[in-house]
Amino acid sequence: MDFNVKQRYTQFIKEKAKELGFSFCGIAKAEFLSEEAPRLDEWLKRNYQGKMQYLENHFDKRLDPTLLVPGAKSVVSLIYNYYPEKDLSQQTELKVAKYAYGEDYHFVIKDKLKTFLSLIQQEIGEVGGRAFVDSAPVMERAWAKRSGLGWIGKNSLLLNKEHGSFFFLAELIIDLELEYDGPVKDYCGTCTACIDACPTDAIVDAHVVDGSKCISYFTIELKEELPTDVKGKFENWIFGCDICQDVCPWNRFSKPHNEDKFNPNPLLETMSKNEWIELTEEVFQNIFRHSAVKRTKFEGLKRNIRFVIDQGACAT
Score class of each variant (00 low, 15 high):
K45S: 15
L67E: 04
K45E: 15
Y99L: 10
Q122R: 13
L67D: 00
A131W: 00
D60Y: 01
K73C: 07
E126A: 10
L117V: 09
E56W: 01
N47M: 09
R39E: 13
V108I: 13
L119Q: 08
I109R: 01
D41R: 15
K98A: 14
E126V: 11
A72P: 04
I120Y: 01
K112V: 01
E103V: 07
N47P: 04
G125T: 06
V96K: 09
V75A: 07
Y105A: 07
R46E: 14
S74A: 13
L94G: 05
Y48S: 10
T115H: 01
L40A: 04
R46V: 03
K73L: 09
Y83K: 03
A72E: 02
G128D: 11
L117C: 07
D104S: 07
Q121A: 09
W43S: 08
K45G: 12
T92Q: 08
E56R: 14
P70T: 11
Y80C: 10
S118K: 14
G128S: 14
D41F: 13
N57F: 09
L44A: 03
L94E: 06
L88R: 05
K114L: 14
D64M: 07
T115K: 11
R39N: 12
S74L: 08
E42G: 02
L68K: 11
F59E: 04
Y99T: 04
Q91M: 10
L40M: 12
Q90P: 00
V75D: 05
E85Y: 00
F132R: 05
N47R: 14
K51P: 02
N47A: 15
L78A: 07
D87Y: 04
Y105I: 12
G71T: 10
Q49M: 11
A72I: 07
R62A: 07
V127R: 04
Y80L: 14
Y80F: 15
L117M: 11
E123H: 11
L113W: 02
Y54Q: 07
T115M: 06
L68Q: 12
S74E: 04
D41N: 15
S118W: 07
P84G: 09
L63Q: 01
A97M: 10
F59T: 03
G129H: 01
Y82C: 10
Q122M: 13
S77L: 05
K86H: 09
D87M: 13
Q91S: 14
E42M: 10
S89R: 14
M52R: 12
G71L: 08
D64P: 03
Y99K: 04
F132T: 05
V108H: 00
K73S: 05
Y54K: 12
Q49K: 08
M52W: 05
L67W: 01
Y83A: 14
A100D: 03
T115N: 06
L119I: 12
K73G: 04
N81Q: 13
L67P: 02
N81I: 11
L113Y: 02
S118M: 12
S74W: 02
K98V: 05
F107I: 08
R46D: 09
K51E: 15
E126P: 01
K110D: 01
E126L: 12
E103S: 13
V76C: 05
Q121I: 09
S89N: 12
A97R: 02
G102P: 06
L119Y: 02
L113T: 06
D41L: 15
Q121Y: 03
L119F: 04
D64E: 15
V76K: 03
H58S: 15
T66V: 13
V108S: 00
I79D: 02
S74M: 07
K98T: 06
K86T: 14
L119R: 08
N81H: 06
P65R: 09
L78M: 08
L119P: 00
